[in-house]
Design a protein around this nucleic acid. Structure first.
Ligand code: MN
Ligand code: MN
Ligand code: ZN
Ligand code: ZN
Lengths: 136, 136
DNA sequence: ATATAAATGAAAACTTTTCTCATTTGCATC
DNA sequence: GATGCAAATGAGAAAAGTTTTCATTTATAT
């Protein structure tokens, strides 16, 4: 019962919101575009507007329930927030996304920001490549 | 005389191409959007279409004369290619862009890709923050 | 000077995302 | 359970950045 998550986030419990959450939770892929979520909705036989999907995902982001990745070439994907930061490897062939955490890189980033006099607010790191499966 | 650069890249020497190169070379800012280049053109009193600016920049990218950064929020900036890879720090207040190179991070990225079985083709790393000037 | 393949400009199209606004819904109150 | 109202929704328009189309112009080889 994830209605609690919504209430805790100060959001009314509505069908579209529950369904979006459900899709994010039950999807094969952890990383979904708004379009992906929308299509999954339709396949489930749920009526929903694409604008609502975007709105809900953006609200979830604001509420800390999901995080948004801005992939190269301007379209975003969303994933359930799990509280721990991580970065991503993207396969340029099959669009498979893998995750990693690297404390050495995190530390270096902070050092670089400091060195340049920047107050770091965020960072984004994507490694592009061909995944094992696609190499054959 | 940068006509040679164009010929070497297999591109005809045309006025729009020469002018775009000239703007990239002489601009205060090293990182320019297509729109920036376009406006600079008009200010120079040059007739040019925005589509041509995009086309030329994309061709230059293909020819290795410029590189394209895909900044958060889906609009690109371009810079003259100088042969050496570097990453970027972006000020979220004034949009100032600084550059850095960090061999430790580069090495870790290669190690991560290898570890995940990825054949790395590229990476993109942006550190977002508030630059020194904007902190005060 | 001529031919021709490539480049250009203007406008339309496209992609992703946000906004507008009329209608519907969730939820607190009676 | 009915009522009221603010919040949420859906449809479509709009926005922003970029690419495509196509008729016209231009660069370059002959
Ligand atoms: Mn992830
Ligand atoms: Mn740069
Ligand atoms: Zn793959
Ligand atoms: Zn700044």
């Amino acid at each position: 019962m994830e209605s609690q998550d919504l209430r805790k986030a100060g959001l009314k419990v509505t069908l579209p919101r529950l369904k979006v959450l459900e899709i994010l939770e039950n999807s094969e892929q952890r990383h979904l575009s708004a379009e992906d979520v929308y299509k999954a909705m339709l396949e489930m036989g749920e009526e929903i507007g694409l604008a609502t999907v975007y709105r809900v995902l953006t609200q979830f982001e604001g509420a800390g329930l999901v995080s948004r990745l801005n992939i190269d070439g301007g379209h975003a994907v969303f994933e359930l927030e799990d509280g721990t930061h991580h970065d991503h490897l993207l396969c340029v062939r099959c669009n498979n996304i893998e995750e990693f955490v690297d404390e050495v890189i995190e530390k270096r980033q902070r050092a670089i920001a400091k060195d340049k006099g920047f107050e770091m607010t965020d960072h984004s790191l994507y490694i592009y490549g061909i995944c094992q499966k696609c190499q054959k």
